[in-house]
Design a protein around this nucleic acid. Structure first.
Lengths: 131, 131
DNA sequence: TAAATAATAGTAATTATTACTAATAAGGAG
DNA sequence: CTCCTTATTAGTAATAATTACTATTATTTA
């Protein structure tokens, strides 16, 4: 049976209160000061467990990121620094229907925009001015 | 200056003639019989280089996959076995406009459906029947 | 053909993630 | 409340994907 765990709740809170769709490492780094005994394996295990339970949402990528906002929504990822942000685009169920075919059972979709975040865009600008 | 390389061309051909959006490892395994001296690092280096040049398209994921079909199009990934297939859904430029805001410079989007491929679907079916 | 240097092969190193095991701590039974 | 069962953890080792490094090879230009 699933038991309560102090660590799991803190990990969940760390994701919930973060705006940056943190990676496992980021969650670990954020909690370490208050929980010096916390183990990185515990963070990974609980993040995946909660994602499987549907308590968190996992975003694939070269490094996995996690999101406590469950209703399906789009994301935008900075091609420079890799940060991810939410987008308020509504989920379009019609798209799922369009994808059906070829014997696949469609369960949903991920819509991820690429772009340059405000921070990286500003850096690039100042680089150009420097030249 | 960029020089011609036998290996790069073979790597490109391997991606182009494959229907399965191969990973670096898959390209390496496919070419190894004909090019026993080929190095995995060479495959990685050239795949990324060609992706940067726009000669290939890179699909992010826990394992990166590559696609020689350049016009933007949607993909579907099997949540069981990880295989990726193309979808003939047209790219919708209107979506890019909807994503603009918050100081981000939007460059495009990736639309990846999740689902169960025919193969994995059939396996699951026979499992159920077995019980 | 020869010199200059991009690209490679082979290997080592790094990063993200998972696996393993003894110790810890939920939480239900008595 | 105390004890027992076992889920969960910390700490560490192992694995997988990817990148870095360096001597050697191969392409290109003079």
């Amino acid at each position: 049976m699933q038991r309560f765990s102090q660590q799991r709740e803190r990990i969940y809170e760390a994701v919930r209160t973060s705006m940056e769709h943190p990676t496992a490492q980021m969650v670990y780094d954020a909690l370490r000061p208050e929980m010096p005994r916390l183990s990185l394996g515990t963070v990974y295990r609980n993040l995946h467990q909660m994602a499987q339970e549907g308590r968190l949402r996992e975003l694939e990528g070269s490094v996995a990121r996690f999101d406590a906002v469950l209703p399906p929504h789009a994301h935008i990822r900075c091609v420079r620094c890799g940060q991810v942000a939410d987008l308020a685009l509504p989920y379009d169920p019609a798209l799922d229907r369009e994808a059906v075919g070829g014997g696949w059972a469609v369960t949903g979709y991920e819509l991820v925009f690429n772009g340059v975040c405000p921070t990286c865009g500003a850096e690039q600008l100042s680089e150009n001015q420097r030249v």
